[in-house]
Design a protein around this nucleic acid. Sequence first.
RNA 1: GCCCCCAUCGUCUAGCGGUUAGGACGCCAGGUUCUCAUCCUGGAAACAGGGGUUCGAUUCCCCUUGGGGGUGCCA
Length: 500
Amino acid sequence: MRELDPRLRGRADPSGRRLPRRARPGRRPRDVALCARARHRRRGRRRSLKGDCMPPPRTRFAPSPTGRVHIGNLRVAIFNWLFARRHGGTFLLRVEDTDRERSTEAACQAVLDALAWTGLEPDEPPLYQSGRQAAHLEAAEALLRSGHAYREDKGGTGRGECVVFRMPGEDIAFEDAVKGRLIKRAADLPDFVLVRSDGHPVFHLANVLDDIAMDVTHVIRGDDHVENTFRHVALYRALGAAPPRFAHLPMIVNAQGKPYAKRDGDAYVGEFRERGYLPEALLNYLALLGWSPGDGREVLTRKELVAAFDLAGVQPSPARFDPVKLDWINGEHMRRLPAEERLAGCVADLRAHGLAEDADPGYLAHVFAIMEDRIKRYIDAAAQTVYFFTEDYPFEEKAVRKRLRRPGALDHLAALRDRFAALPAFDAASLEAALQDLADARGEKAAALIHPTRVAVSGSAAGPGLYVLLETLGRERVLDRLDRVIARERAAAADADGAS
RNA sequence: GCCCCCAUCGUCUAGCGGUUAGGACGCCAGGUUCUCAUCCUGGAAACAGGGGUUCGAUUCCCCUUGGGGGUGCCA
């Protein structure tokens, strides 16, 4: 660590204000697992993790199962997982299912599914909080006995007595791995309920007790828990347990810069899955929301993320979710995928649209090979390749207008059709020669023939190179399609003439 | 209201007192190509404002403004 100005020692300046994290000596990392990377980065030299006798960390993801997993929650899981993996530790899952109304079995399964899909498998069987109520109540009794808690009809509600935790009456501070040293005055820390008058433990008690039971060393969670942490620290002490390290991640906000609300929709993990995103891409994107490896890399594999991850690099301010960048990252992961895997995903989308049910595997492979980088999401696969699999392919209105309803276009197509019909071999090279030859004969540029042909045989203005496209479709289909389109467009033109 | 946190291009970020403030997505313009996608080149685009401290502030301090979180017998 660089030398600190002695005048900066202490946690506050003369006016009593807290210093921001970078100026605070208290931010000096004491926890090697948390901060070795920070030191490394600051001093620009490598330091061994081994010599520091830090036991491997244990992190946990502790969602309350509500049926769907939000990307904000998934990101919390990702950071916990990344941190555990980075330091050779253990990633745990605790299902906080004490709200019996919402915590159905299906809701729990949804959590497991989301984690499995993203590849964040817990290293030990999940702990279900609902099964620990007896232990929670027992601990409350102990706190009562030790004088750290008392019974009271809080607020005189007439609901009966609940168990209230007695705050120690002193300021409480803790070191947050992303926010630095946080302190709260005793006056701002009132006593709080541990056990409701109906006999159920509240979140704070259960949460802390379970973290102790699970031997959690690093609590990495959302920003919304910062205020709770002061209470939790007091609880740990009263319980005679050493508090874990804390790291509070900034929230993810929506396109308007506001916290995600129900109506924002498309923010649930399952929806990204349904929309054809790759789990690796979502993982990559979410890991980069609020954190960066610091060396400019943007597209990282799971392995690279683990190797580079560092809590000290986490941004303390909220990050905005950008679906456009996610699309880009997804495309990047897509193109890095082994061909067979990408093929399988694309074919699944075809099947989902009732296409290519009995298509030849070789043909399928060929189609997606010539599509190259054009498909960025599985869910786009069918729409972008429909014309390879059915004669009932849609025509883009704009493309038809621009390319087919242009003077001379249909004549060109008719002439080209005859050239194609007469070709000895229907391969890309022959097709190109034939088309070029016809263009020359008619004093046109090749493009004048290429565009209408593409629209006629595919209905689309975009796609693979025309010659390889034609070769792939094969002579029969190409000639049929040209005939049909020419006839249809001529009829349409005649109608228009007659009408005017 | 009170408590706490935050603030670099539109977005995600690098930056740790001296930089032409860097990168990525997106955008714009060129190039390659039959289109689209890819690829290549170039461009526009940021330190919220005001005071300090300092020879020198994006960087350290304060205030303002703006955002966020918390203020339950919810989790």
